[in-house]
């Protein structure tokens, strides 16, 4: 770990992001992303490319904005049932810097999701690319590596 990284601040930021997904508030969640921010959940292990390979999610700002509006739309029947999550994040590590200087942070996550009278568990690793700004951060990209990306999942109606 390099000395100039304040891992406590990084931790705080990741916890803050997770809290906006626990009881989904996509307005606040989206504000944590840079204008060119992306959210990516590959559909296979070791996937390198979100454009030439298939993913469960690969949203840029435009898709996030559409999803935010869809999530609260009264006619989106899959959103009639509340979704609530509990994110646990740990093993937070500084994994270097990207070419453009973004901080690369990896962490492990376990998310328990309650939806449609059922509790489901997701687990895996996150990789965040963070832009340091005004004592806090903006997310340039978040990659969600499920331990079982190839499994047949049921609907995932909220970002993990």
């Amino acid at each position: 770990m390099s000395a100039d990284i304040d891992l406590i601040a990084v931790e705080d930021f990741l916890y803050q992001e997770a809290s906006y997904l626990d009881n989904p508030d996509l307005e606040k969640w989206l504000a944590l992303y840079s204008p060119d921010g992306t959210y990516w959940m590959p559909a296979s292990e070791n996937q390198h490319d979100p454009v030439n390979e298939i993913s469960h999610f690969y949203d840029d700002r435009v898709m996030m904005e559409i999803r935010k509006r869809n999530f609260v739309h009264p006619r989106a029947s899959s959103k009639d049932s509340a979704v609530r999550c509990s994110h646990l994040i740990g093993n937070i590590r500084h994994a270097g810097r990207s070419d453009n200087g973004d901080l690369i942070i990896t962490s492990n996550f376990q998310v328990v999701m309650f939806y449609r009278e059922e509790q489901r568990v997701f687990a895996g690793t996150y990789q965040h690319h963070l832009i340091e700004r005004n004592n806090s951060f903006l997310i340039r990209s978040k990659r969600v590596n499920l331990i079982n990306p190839e499994a047949a999942h049921k609907s995932i109606i909220i970002y993990l």
Binding site: I66, S77, D80, S155
Partner: peptide, 26 residues
């Protein structure tokens, strides 16, 4: 062309899409 196909699959047919889950709900 493949990129558009994959975009379609992701937007319409994935578990994380905004189309498939509403079909399944029904």
């Amino acid at each position: 062309m493949l990129q558009r196909t994959l975009l379609y699959s992701r937007l319409i047919n994935s578990v994380g899409s905004m189309v498939g889950p509403d079909d399944l709900e029904c």
